[in-house]
């Protein structure tokens, strides 16, 4: 197991390198540069700015300098649009996104998985259909609609809940709900689907015929395999949740990390962009590793250790 994890982390370094390469060249391929503004910035000034950020150097030098600074000093560069180190930006915004993401995850699992189980057990009944209809609502109503609706209908009418802002501890409720809603719906549908797949298999039929209660069969035998699709989905989904969401953050005025993915791209702020992309890549690697390990634990037939050889 230890060797497996170590191997995966080493592969992770290669992923980060590939990710860096792609992001670097994509960032360079975008039209415009960081110093393109609507004001009249003279060519002289632009030259000084480029020099200041090391952007006047040949491309291949720039390509090497950035990662070597990261490796030697843990320095992700200075953001051209915010005028402060990328390290600061990530270290100040990630904790916020983490809190929000954990809240959203709790909500998504706490609601999504039970709904999925109930639906699978009462398959093709009115209970199943209405629960799945609710899940569909969660999927069909996008965050930019849910958020404002919560603001207008809930926050404006309940004292203690603010329309937006991130200061008092209650503030994370509405954004976490909004962020987790889609995942809850996904989990409900995936859990139901995964369980149905298992429930029709021979070993479950055997268990039934042995006279075990349906609940026991589900919880003890079926759930492990039935959760496989959900677990595979949760890897990237959880990484996405804890790295923030532009829509949720801007609607609820949350100082999280998600907005930097969008703002950095629009401002052509390549250091911030590569910083958050690499950080997100790191989270994806970790979460997919966790999800793969969990897959192995849930279904002992999947021997994850094998691939490290």
């Amino acid at each position: 197991m230890f060797r497996f994890i170590l191997g995966r982390l080493l592969q992770g370094l290669l992923v980060l390198l590939a990710l860096y390469t792609i992001t670097f060249f994509l960032a360079k391929a975008m039209p415009g540069e960081p110093f393109t503004t609507e004001k009249n910035v003279s060519e002289t000034t632009k030259q000084y700015l480029r020099k200041l950020y090391g952007l006047e150097k040949p491309l291949w030098q720039q390509y090497i300098i950035y990662p070597s600074k990261i490796i030697s000093a843990g320095d992700f560069g200075v953001s051209t649009s915010k005028g402060r180190p990328v390290n600061d930006i990530i270290s100040q915004s990630f904790p916020v996104s983490l809190v929000l993401g954990l809240g959203a995850l709790t909500f998504a699992i706490g609601i999504g998985v039970p709904i999925g189980i109930i639906s699978a057990v009462r398959r093709n009944s009115w209970v199943d259909w209405s629960l799945m209809a609710v899940a569909m609502v969660g999927i069909c109503v996008p965050a930019f609609t849910v958020g404002p609706l919560l603001q207008i209908l809930v926050a404006a009418n309940i004292p203690g809940l603010k329309v937006a802002g991130w200061g008092s501890p209650l503030d994370f409720l509405l954004p976490a709900f909004t962020l987790g809603l889609v995942s809850a719906a996904y989990l409900a549908r995936l859990t139901r689907g995964g369980l149905l797949e298992i429930l029709s298999q021979d070993f479950i039929r055997t268990a039934h015929s042995k006279g075990l209660s349906p609940t026991r069969v589900i919880l003890k035998h079926a759930l492990r395999g039935g959760l496989l699709p959900s677990v595979a989905y949760l890897g990237p989904a959880f990484a996405a949740m804890i790295s923030g969401s532009f829509i949720v953050e801007t609607i609820f005025q949350v100082p999280g990390m998600g907005q930097h993915f969008v703002n950095a791209a629009i401002a052509r702020d390549e250091f911030l962009l590569m910083g958050v992309a690499l950080f997100f890549g790191f989270l994806i690697i970790l979460m997919n590793l966790a999800s793969d390990i969990l897959t192995g634990l849930l279904d002992p037939r999947v021997r994850i250790g094998k691939e490290a050889s």
Binding site: L14, I22, T23, L26, A29, A265, L273, G281, I284, N288
Partner: peptide
């Protein structure tokens, strides 16, 4: 084995690429 590991690491990489940047480049 190795094939699986490689293929899945490609997925990890693609999952991490900032989508908006790709869109801006494609647009251009």
């Amino acid at each position: 084995g190795r094939i699986d590991a490689t293929m899945m690491r490609v997925v990890d990489t693609l999952l991490s690429i900032p989508f908006l940047v790709v869109v801006i480049v494609l647009q251009a």
